[in-house]
Design a protein around this nucleic acid. Structure first.
Length: 810
RNA sequence: GCUGCUGUGGCGAAAUAGGCAGACGCAAUGGAUUUAGGAUCCAUCGGUAGUUAAUACCAUGCCGGUUCAAGUCCGGCCAGCAGCACCA
């Protein structure tokens, strides 16, 4: 039986969606124009890693949201760039390739094909001509080029450091990739290992990465996370002389408490442990401790955070810079070599960790700031504290004492003001095959030599085996004919760097390549960079806040410094979507069996319904559970929208009685899209359609406006109704976004509430243009008012224009 | 422990800037249509009391405050989520 709503013709979403997708593709409807005189708008979503599973229902939430924004901006006359590409280097592909004996390049190609067809089936208006792929040598040529520029400026360096080593991936990880002592990707244990690695000096940009957050429109929580991650602390470095002749340099944020020092602590990796070896009386005990703490995995160190351990360096002591008193020195792994100087002055009276350690090892606790009881617990809440037992600092407030002591230290040459960051340099080498080769050659005579830029790209060799090795070397070391080269400097025998770049390399600058993706002589044409940048609106996941977002800001700032890009910050506005959870409210995963397959949804309800539902599901920034019932409401709404074609009258203009409703809806949809409130934008269109059906018909202009408003959300059905009802010459997506008239958004006849002592008692009808006097005159005529007021004393009358009246009576 | 966020019907959620709490949707119930199911259309739909009702009282995690008026502002709790976590 025919599934007829109101319409003359049933809407066949499969046929229509295919038809319009083909038309858009053929006509290149959504290609950004290289007409740099037009106002531009650059919308960007995080390009996906093309995994073997195909897209997830989470992907469209981001892509459709910015598709709605992009389509609306086009209708508003902007030259919109909304591109897509593939972040295709990475371990899952490599692991899949190893397991199934298919080359990573082939796996990648297949996955991209699948992803692309899935995205096209959703009708997302990407400009496919600008597609990029990080694994394409023509792309990673420029990733390597950027690395060389960093190298030339001294921002890429190789160094032997303690690194995070994933025992399962057999690969080093950046600090940002270690989550709770486990590998971010595979959740296996991370251990510490000494290894020679390439690092990027992101720390050099720490201050600017904080400061320039003021220049951009990011959600506060994203700014907070980034600042927190960079972790700036202001304090001082102080030299404590020792009986060994060396000065022990420490970092503290509380130089004001210097008279409360009762011992010092150095990290087990501190070089003085070795240096002082011969004079340390209990060296065998120290060795034991150092070895034991070195064996602890990242996780064990965190787990053991509660119970502090340590051992005193017998025979060694430091000298207090002001009192001249002897201070014992301990080794303990609660002090990290990677932060500050790897050594601290311990003030147990005013630091909880030092207090705990002092209790365990029976060390003295001295009060230097008045307020607490330092024998019971460390007194750390000292913002308004006053110094005591501190010689020339006595009586000063904490802030004053900090300044005083720093100037004193500087005067006497015993220390200086110092700012430290938790942020560490970015460990940039990976011992795996499927990544960009690092374009460096190691020559025995010349050291590290960058390859000539004219040789780029250094292509990944085509090999048969790419298993990670147990000895911690990249599988590329086995490819002798690739590794053995001549030194570009001296011409002698040399070897290529065999480590590859991390996955975050290609994604740190991909949004620049979209601007001019076929350029073979530079990253992108200068004019294109100047015109399109910065990205006007970038949406992505919260999980990338301390990885991709921070890394790409760093690279961009570097490119700004060398004159490649025109602005200090890459993304003018950043938003984050919430996760789509399984129907049971838990994170979607195969093991939980709550995964929703987007292909099935598109097949059953159509792309428009899928798109609309993902936008209607809830607050865009919050996570929301999928509901297989809820999606039906969106399907019903689209069916009712199609049904409008069956009640289309021959009248042309918007009817007077709906003029206000239309203006209000245009206003609501226009503003809500800008403010990420897709759910309420859709709700307002649902209300409008209810009103239209109540009126029994729709005029041509009304249907035109409705179609344009709905077009960004449901692009296929709106084109189809436009065509079917011959509403205009071209396509809906080529129309102009409707304007609203603020003055028409107010109803003439309105109902306002009358409250007595703050409680609504009844309502009266007024004209919205009525003055306060007229409203009260109307009120006094009201019988309910007379009854309620009878015998009572009216103390106060409040009128909130067009909203309510509140009467205070006794 | 620190930082940030969240808490509203059976469910997803709305509520400029302190001004009628629950828009919109789902589910549910009753009815129309149908051979039937589905789809569609109409109506009801926070709770308690009240014969439907009028109406009254209660209701935005809890306790208090400011105000003519509080989901919204202030103070104090509680719960949940996320991030960081020996960062001196």
């Amino acid at each position: 039986m025919e599934n007829k709503i109101h319409g003359e013709k049933k809407y066949d979403f499969k046929k229509a969606e295919n038809k319009w997708q083909e038309i858009w593709d053929k006509k290149k409807t959504f290609a950004a124009k290289n007409d740099f005189s037009k106002p531009k708008f650059y919308t960007l979503v995080e390009f996906p890693y093309p995994s073997g599973q195909g897209i997830h229902v989470g992907h469209p939430r981001s892509y459709v949201a910015l598709d709605v924004v992009s389509r609306k901006k086009r209708l508003q006359g902007y030259n919109v760039l909304y591109p897509m590409g593939w972040d295709a280097f990475g371990l899952p592909t490599e692991n899949f390739a190893i397991k199934n004996k298919i080359k990573p390049s082939i796996v990648t190609k297949n996955n991209i094909k699948r992803f692309k067809s899935q995205l096209m089936a959703l009708g997302v208006s990407f400009d496919w001509d600008r597609e990029v792929n990080t694994t394409d040598p023509e792309y990673y040529k420029w990733t390597q080029w950027i690395f060389l520029q960093l190298y030339k400026k001294g921002l890429a360096y190789k160094s032997e450091t303690m690194v995070n080593w994933c025992t399962s991936c057999k690969c080093v990880l950046a600090n940002e990739e270690v989550v709770n002592g486990k590998c971010e990707r595979c959740s296996n244990d991370v251990i510490h290992k000494k290894k020679s690695q390439w690092l990027l000096k992101i720390t050099e940009y720490a201050q600017r990465l904080i400061d320039d957050l003021d220049l951009v429109n990011y959600p506060p929580r994203v700014k907070a996370l980034q600042k927190n991650w960079i972790g700036k602390s202001v304090g001082a470095e102080i030299d404590f002389q020792t009986n060994q002749g060396d000065a022990l340099k420490i970092f503290t944020t509380r130089p004001d408490t210097i008279f409360g020092v009762s011992y010092m602590v150095i990290s087990p990796e501190h070089p003085f442990v070795e240096k002082w070896r011969n004079n340390i009386k209990n060296m065998s005990g120290i060795d034991e401790y150092v070895v034991a703490s070195g064996k602890k995995s990242e996780l064990e160190r965190t787990d053991l955070a509660k119970e502090k351990t340590g051992i005193e360096l017998e025979g060694i002591y430091a000298v207090h810079p002001f009192t001249g008193g002897k201070i014992p020195i301990f080794v303990s792994d609660y002090v990290l070599m990677s932060y500050g100087t790897g050594a601290i002055m311990a003030v147990p009276g005013h630091d909880a960790r030092d207090w705990e350690f002092a209790m365990k090892y029976k060390l003295p606790v001295k009060e230097v700031i008045k307020g607490g009881d330092v024998q019971k617990e460390a007194y750390t809440d000292t913002l308004d504290g006053v110094l005591v037992n501190s010689e020339f600092l006595n009586g000063l407030k904490v802030e004053e004492a900090k300044n005083r002591i720093i100037s004193e230290l500087e005067k006497q040459g015993k220390g200086n003001k110092k700012i430290n960051y938790k942020l560490r340099d970015w460990i940039f080498s990976r011992q795996r095959y499927w990544g960009e080769p690092i374009p460096i050659i190691e020559c025995e005579r010349c050291g590290y030599v960058p390859v000539n830029e004219s040789e780029l790209p250094i292509k990944l060799p085509d090999v048969e085996y790419y298993e990670p090795t147990d000895n911690g070397e990249s599988p590329l070391t086995e490819v002798k004919e690739w590794v053995n080269v001549k030194c570009p400097k001296c011409g002698g025998d040399a070897k290529r760097e065999t480590d590859t770049m991390p996955q975050w390399a290609g994604s740190s600058w991909y949004f620049l390549r979209y601007l001019d993706n076929h350029n073979s002589s530079c990253i992108a044409d200068k004019k294109a960079l100047d015109y399109w940048l910065p990205v006007d609106w970038y949406n992505g996941g919260m999980e990338h806040t301390t990885l991709h977002l921070l890394y790409s800001r760093f690279w961009y700032k570097f490119l700004y410094d060398i004159g490649v890009v025109p602005t200090k910050e890459p993304y003018a506005k950043r938003t984050s979507h919430g996760m789509i959870l399984g129907e049971n409210g838990e994170k979607m995963s195969k093991s939980r069996g709550n995964v929703v397959n987007p292909d099935e949804i598109v097949d059953k309800y159509g792309a428009d319904t899928m798109r609309l539902y993902e936008m209607f599901i809830g607050d865009f920034e919050k996570s929301a559970p999928w509901s297989s019932e809820g999606i039906k409401g969106c399907k019903r709404f689209l069916d009712r929208f199609w049904g409008l074609s069956g009640i289309l009258s021959s009248e042309l203009e918007v009817r007077k009685e709906l003029d206000c409703a239309f203006n209000k809806t245009i206003k609501k949809v226009t503003e809500d899209i800008e403010n990420l409130k897709f759910n309420t934008a859709i709700a307002s269109m649902m209300s409008l359609i209810n009103e239209i059906y109540d009126s029994g018909k729709i005029t041509r202009q009304e249907l035109k406006i409705f179609s344009i408003l709905l077009n960004p959300f449901a692009p296929h059905i709106t084109e189809e109704i436009w065509d079917f009802c011959s509403l205009g010459k071209g396509m809906v997506c080529e129309e102009a976004w409707p304007e609203f008239d603020e003055s028409k958004c107010i109803d003439k006849d309105i109902e306002i509430a009358v409250q007595i002592n703050g409680k609504v008692k009844f309502k009266i009808n007024i004209n919205s243009e009525d003055s306060q006097e007229e409203v009260f005159r109307l009120l006094e005529k009201n019988t309910q008012f007379k009854e309620l007021i009878m015998g009572k004393e009216l103390i106060k009358k409040i009128y909130v224009p067009k909203k309510l009246i509140n009467l205070v009576i006794k």
